[in-house]
Amino acid sequence: MLILGIETSCDETSVALIEDSGRILSNVIASSAEAHALYGGVVPEVAARAHLENLPGTFEQALKAAGVTLGDVSLVGATAGPGLIGALLVGFSAAKALAFARGVPLVTVNHLEGHLFSPYLRAGGDPARPVRYPFHGLVVSGGHAELVRVEDGRIVPIARTRDDAPGEAFDKVARRAGLGYPGGPVIDRIAARGDGARFPLPVGRPGDGTDDFSFSGLKTAMLREFEKRGVTGEKVDPDALSRDHVDLFASFQRAIVTALLERVETVHAREGIRTLALSGGVAANSELRATLSAWGEERGVEVLLPDRALTSDNAAMIAWAASLRFRREGPTAFRDANARSRWPLGQPAA
């Protein structure tokens, strides 16, 4: 069974073809990140325009790279939310039209569910690892921080961020420090040569007894540090930072990783699940990967890390989530379905 995936929820236009074994035949991504770099963040209307320009070419490239034709496709998986509504509507409208006109089933996919199952995929052309339930899923990206329990046929939310997502904190701090956009990779690189224990930075918790995350206090603490140190936001060379600044960024990254680890630890102690699947753009962060892996070894928890190529938004993970859902529930009645900007994990499509 050949599955076509289409993803346009934020600033990456992606089209993928996978087999129902999870083997990835192609996973083409066209990013409009360069256009957004001018503004220091994703501009919804700019993203939506770029999706329409990029979609037809990305689609043909994906078919060609997979060596298949549209006639070979027997299931379409399309991201229907959450995300930027104007961006989502481009890929979702196109996917609906393709499935409608070909008479093949379509499954509407929650973008976060795509991320959740992405650590089971393998980028080198191998079938996916077998999915065994239950597992804990931690999705960390520019828009989300979600910790959930994934059971067979059910996703139970445990914790989410109340304010900024970690990737958003990376971006805002980097922009304010003149390090450009996106912020995650550059801070990761700087932090690798710094002392993350040097400046203890606060990571707040909502004081209501939930396991939720909060990262806006940390971001504000960093901005205050910048003010104190005369960091103006003017463009700087990340390789020519002072020792103090390098350690400050390392401490910032350490604070985010520590907050995530603490919550994983608490939830593991309470629920005792033996598998943790990390995903999302921030799952590319070296320190987060190393820290969670080491923790897993110590605790006897299997920690699944996504292939770095599959951490950013991509359509292979959407096709894979569609395939898993299709096996369990069959197709979505999609003719009158619409994309939605808000779609919390664990809730059915509206």
Partner: peptide, 12 residues
Amino acid sequence: RVGLATAWGLGR
């Protein structure tokens, strides 16, 4: 965009 994306999908 909805019109063009739909037209593209149908046409393709």
